[in-house]
């Protein structure tokens, strides 16, 4: 662990030279580092750096400063090698999106196959608890008697978001829901379901008439209709941003806390070693919080989808 932290410190210390392309002196400074007269800036950046030859290797791989490592951890990669396997997949988040989708389908099939004489066995018992919770506490409570029709959709939302968030906590993987495009797709499905709930019940004209309460005075309609149409799109937009930001923020926090070690090792090696238990402790705490957040976000996304579907299925009169 300590060795890893020190190697990261080496990579960070080497970073300023690798990324200061506008100043031509910087690459030269690396070459001449072992020489007898280093400049003031050079001495500072080499404080935690053993020989310059070692500093070259990580810098050549394209790792930048702290901010760049942070962003690299959470952003998508166009050409991704899953788990170091010898093939390239077009996109890190795409790979884990498909992977988690498969995982959810397999888990569902395994739990269904585990039923013996109408009673669940093994993993099915745990899944059944969640399924009954989503059906009774989320779907039926917020959508009413139409809830059964939307329960499969809400269950898909719940288990996909839960699995994606939990799987993203495994080292060397990525969280597909930490990508704005993925949450956009989820929110779009939710939007279509909301509109379908209203249109299938009242027809297109009836659905749009239901947006505003009946019997409003005409001047108020001028304000209410644009607000309601805007609200139609704001609801899934809020779902999209909420899930994305929650998934992104947790991973950024963990990376930033782990980054404290190399950053303080840049100041002095002793400080870096002192920082290791502090940094690991705080990162572990956020990691445990992330497990909780995975469940809460899966619940909240499903709950809000159900509330909005119920809102269009049973408009206020």
């Amino acid at each position: 662990m300590m060795l890893g932290a020190l190697l990261l410190a080496v990579a960070l210390a080497a970073a300023p030279q690798a990324h200061e392309t506008p100043s031509p002196a910087a690459p030269v400074a690396v070459e001449t580092a072992p020489a007898s007269s280093p400049s003031a800036a050079d001495a500072e950046s080499h404080a935690a750096t053993p020989p310059a030859a070692e500093a070259h290797a990580p810098a050549d791989e394209g790792h930048g400063g702290a901010a760049e490592i942070l962003m690299h951890h959470v952003t998508d990669e166009a050409a991704y090698r899953p788990f170091g396997l010898p093939f390239i997949f077009p996109g890190k988040h795409l790979f884990f999106l498909i992977f988690v989708m498969g995982l959810v389908i397999v888990a569902a099939r395994v739990s269904i196959a585990g039923y013996k004489n109408g009673a669940p066995t093994g993993i099915g018992s745990a899944v059944e608890t969640l399924v009954v919770f989503v059906r009774d506490e989320i779907a039926m409570k917020n959508i009413g008697h139409d809830g059964a029709k939307f329960t499969p959709l809400l269950l898909s939302f719940f288990f996909f978001i839960l699995f994606a968030a939990l799987f993203g906590l495994v080292p060397f993987t990525g969280t597909s829901t930490g990508n704005l495009s993925v949450t956009l797709a989820l929110a779009s499905i939710s939007f279509v379901a909301q509109q379908y709930a209203g249109i299938s019940k009242y027809g297109v004209a009836g659905h749009f008439k239901n947006l505003v309460p009946h019997g409003l005075p005409a001047p108020l309609l001028l304000v209410m209709i644009p607000i309601e149409i805007l609200g139609m799109f704001t609801k899934p937009f809020a779902l999209m941003i909420r899930l994305f930001a929650n998934m992104l923020a947790g991973h950024m926090m963990i990376t930033a806390l782990l980054m404290l070690v190399p950053l303080s090792a840049q100041i002095s090696q002793t400080l870096g070693i002192i920082m290791i238990p502090i940094s690991l402790g705080m990162a572990l705490f956020i990691m445990c919080l992330e497990v909780l957040v995975a469940f809460i976000q899966a619940y909240v996304f499903t709950l809000f989808s159900a509330i909005f579907i119920g809102m269009y299925a049973h408009p206020s009169h």
Binding site: I241, R242, A249, V300, L303
Partner: peptide, 19 residues
């Protein structure tokens, strides 16, 4: 939880702008 989610959503809009 519903109200907390709505408040959190509004806060996150601001934070996404910061990012």
């Amino acid at each position: 939880i519903v109200a907390a989610g709505l408040i959190e959503g509004a806060t996150l809009f601001a934070l996404v702008i910061m990012i």
